[in-house]
Write a protein that binds this DNA or RNA. Structure first.
Length: 572
RNA sequence: CGGAGCGUGGCGCAGCUUGGUAGCGCACUUGACUGGGGGUCAAGAGGUCGCCGGUUCAAAUCCGGCCGCUCCGACCA
């Protein structure tokens, strides 16, 4: 291995973090001189960062290959028609970087490769004998994000590993999926980042079901619902939860005057009842249709669940005048008398008995409004947003919510792409069939950011050995010939044994060198100074350890290998 | 796209309210001293004050427009 000299290293460390950086990982990546921002969500990666990224890629590559996947490369520039074929030109629209070629043909910079891999499949696969297949790629992808943020966490140009599988049927698919799932756990463990696999919404990728691999951290942008007792874990956007008891009432409909009371909280206080004894109406425009959603007063509607239930691609809250246009009275809306086809109701209301609901008349509510007796809905569906404290749907324990970063996402695509794009094969009966697909993504730079976030202290990065840009950071102290020759002896011994070595050969004071060593975070630091050499000793210090230990110069290389090995065992 | 904030040397910031020679710390260059946890002294280099326009004798400073970046939200793998 070549030895890197700090005097020649491209990049510099900063004593203070740039003001734009918020999270620990972003600050450390900037301070250590690993990344430089060019534009919002667009970064350069300097030599140590690039080295780490390649190590991460190599880990991913090994695990993908172990799972039976073959690496390929696909185009980043794609004709827009490809996206029209799958029907995603519009749904993915705003995120697509569009460009025109010289013939005025519209091309896009690929944000992901489901379309192109499905096209590849059409070109290559004819028969069931060619299946199963599993391919992967690690390439730069482009997404014109509405809001890049958090340093490397959400960017517009990034390396993504995507794997795609093709199978003859669901049973065969399950094998590929299980292999990928295991590979994902292996990858994150090898990179030193703890993850939890959670049920997720498949979003713009589509398909039947998906799981996210989440690194739990307060700087995350996803809300994750977790059950501490049974282990249930899901993204809040699709988390299920039990509704608990509702204090529903018996009795006939009864109008009650509620002047100026237009909120659930206000209503509950005014009538001296809990919010959960009320029914809340929320209005949405779902694929252009005004929709009346009803849920128990203490709960909130999960728009994504609502949208998925109605098989829609777009949903937003109705504006105040649109509510009126639909014939509903904001603040006093009642599901009674509304066309059931436009009503979606959450089970929390269906099973509740009599609740207090609007009277569809300014200044009045109704008591004892009961689903089934007084009104009905065409759609009964879970449209509730799980919140911390809600009972777990599986075991009833109180759910918790934590923030997290989505590092990987694996999807059961079914025939979402193979069907519209007419990718087919002939089975053994000569029947034309559509393959079951899966896709499996990992954001590589985001993973590096997570590695730093999960492995740092107040002084700097603490790289896990597996992805460290340098294994050993040599700190020579003093300019004597003794020091120089000892350094030369140690560095060449280490390099010869296959270790990546960084030597701080700068004319800097000890404190500066030590601080930079802590910041850059190589797993092992070797200090070689005149003071130790008088006793024939050099100092070894593992980055996570508080104290250094002295070893004879002659044993330095062997001792270094030993302590690096001990690190591997203790950390995993 | 809605809300908020910020653009002054490589980084962190002051100056702007009340217009008048652009400043501080760190980093950088040279020299001396120093030499095991971000040293000391001396001498330096480096800035179209984001851009365009306006007001004014005079604009970093006041006014207008635009651009960029960050954060919250919407959205999003």
């Amino acid at each position: 291995m070549p030895v890197t000299r700090m005097s020649a290293l491209f990049g510099r460390t900063l004593r203070e973090a740039p003001a734009d950086a918020d999270s620990a990982n972003h600050q450390l990546l900037l301070r250590s001189g690993l990344i430089v921002q060019l534009a919002a969500g667009v970064y350069s990666f300097l030599p140590p960062a690039w080295r780490t990224l390649r190590k991460i890629e190599q880990i991913i590559r090994e695990e993908m290959e172990a799972a039976g996947s073959q690496e390929i490369r696909m185009p980043a520039i794609q004709p827009r028609e490809l996206w029209e074929e799958s029907g995603r030109a519009d749904s993915y629209g705003p995120v697509l970087f569009n460009l025109k070629d010289r013939r005025d043909r519209t091309m896009v910079l690929a944000p992901t490769h489901e379309e192109s891999v499905t096209d590849l499949f059409r070109a290559v696969v004819q028969s069931y004998r060619d299946l199963p297949q599993s391919v992967f790629q690690m390439q730069t992808k482009f997404r014109d994000e509405p809001r890049p943020r958090g340093g490397l966490v959400r960017v517009r140009e990034f390396i993504m590993k995507d794997a795609y599988t093709f199978d003859v049927d669901d049973e065969a698919f399950d094998l590929n999926y299980a292999a990928m799932r295991q590979a994902y756990h292996n990858i994150f463990e090898r990179c030193g980042v703890p993850v939890v696999a959670v049920q997720a919404d498949s979003g713009a990728i589509g398909g039947k079901q998906s799981e996210e691999f989440i690194f739990l951290t307060e700087i995350g942008e996803d809300n994750i619902i977790l059950c501490p007792s049974c282990g249930y874990a899901a993204n809040q956007e699709r988390a299920e939860f039990a509704r608990g008891e509702s204090p529903g009432s018996d009795g006939d409909l009864e109008e009650v005057e509620t002047p100026g009371i237009t909120t659930i909280d206000g209503l509950a206080e005014f009538l001296g009842i809990p919010a959960r004894a009320t029914a809340k109406a929320a209005f949405f425009l779902v694929d252009g249709e005004p929709t009346f959603a009803v849920i128990r007063g203490d709960l909130e509607v999960n728009e994504l669940k609502l949208m998925n239930e109605l098989d829609a691609t777009d949903a937003r809250r109705l504006l105040t005048d649109e509510v009126a246009e639909a014939g509903w009275v904001a603040g006093y809306a009642s599901p009674i008398g509304v066309d059931p086809a436009r009503v979606v109701v959450d089970p929390s209301v269906v099973d509740a008995g009599g609740l207090v609901a609007g009277a569809n008349r300014e200044g009045y509510h109704l008591r004892n409004v009961a689903y089934g007796r007084d009104w009905s809905a065409a759609t009964i569906a879970d449209i509730g947003m799980a919140q911390p404290g809600d009972p777990c749907a599986k075991c009833g324990s109180a759910l918790e919510m934590k923030r997290g970063i989505e590092l990987g996402h694996i999807f059961k695509l079914g025939t979402r792409y193979s069907d519209p794009m007419e990718a087919t094969f002939l089975d053994s009966d000569g029947e034309r069939r559509t393959p079951i697909m899966g896709c499996y993504g990992i954001g590589v730079e985001r993973l590096m950011a997570a590695v730093v976030q999960a492995n740092h202290d107040e002084l700097g990065i603490i790289w896990p050995r597996s992805v460290a840009p340098f294994d050993v950071h040599i700190v020579p102290l003093g300019g004597s010939d003794d020091v120089a020759s000892a350094v030369s002896q140690v560095e060449s011994g280490l390099a010869a044994s296959g270790l990546n070595v960084l030597v701080d050969d700068r004319e800097e004071r000890a404190g500066v060198k030590f601080n930079d060593a802590d910041l850059l975070g190589a797993p092992l630091r070797i200090t070689i100074g005149a003071r130790g050499l008088k006793q024939g000793q050099v100092e070894l210090k593992l980055r996570p350890d508080p104290e250094a230990s002295s070893v004879p110069l002659a044993n330095a290389v062997a001792a270094a290998q030993e302590s690096l090995a001990s690190l591997e065992h203790s950390s995993s």
